[in-house]
């Protein structure tokens, strides 16, 4: 059973993201939406946290929310961009979803 984790909180909730990442198993995926897109940018803090995710886990960010915050240019290479269509596709592929907020 794979799970898509949906994370929508900004940098104030680093402990929540840490718990989310600790919960992930290796076939899970994680998508950052809303204020959570800030975690998809390239920085020491984000790479330290995301580096703890299981190796095969896919990490995604919602393009609409990333662009709305002017962060598209700052995206980390390890994070893949999807639009709403791709977001829906991710939910098709995972039997479960878990929203962190």
């Amino acid at each position: 059973m794979t799970t898509l984790h949906i994370f929508n909180q900004g940098t104030l909730q680093s402990a929540l993201l840490q718990r989310c990442i600790e919960t992930m198993s290796h076939k899970d995926a994680l998508i950052f939406i809303e204020d959570g897109v800030v975690w998809a940018t390239d920085s020491p803090l984000t790479s330290q946290l995301l580096g703890k995710a299981p190796q095969n886990a896919g990490i995604y960010v919602l393009s609409e929310d990333l662009g709305a915050r002017g962060l598209s240019e700052l995206k980390a290479e390890s994070v893949a961009v999807v639009d709403y269509n791709g977001f829906v596709e991710l939910t098709e592929q995972s039997q479960n979803t878990l929203s962190w907020f």
Binding site: N8, I33, E34, D35, E64, D65, D83, Y84, N85, F87, V88, E89, T91, E92, F101
Partner: peptide, 28 residues
């Protein structure tokens, strides 16, 4: 699909995200 919305219009992005997700899901 079923959708759960925790946020209010004008104070949270949740209902807007839900709405856009629903439009994308319907179009798929």
């Amino acid at each position: 699909y079923s959708i759960v919305v925790y946020g209010a219009p004008h104070s949270s992005q949740a209902p807007y995200s839900a709405y856009q997700f629903i439009q994308a899901a319907l179009s798929r």
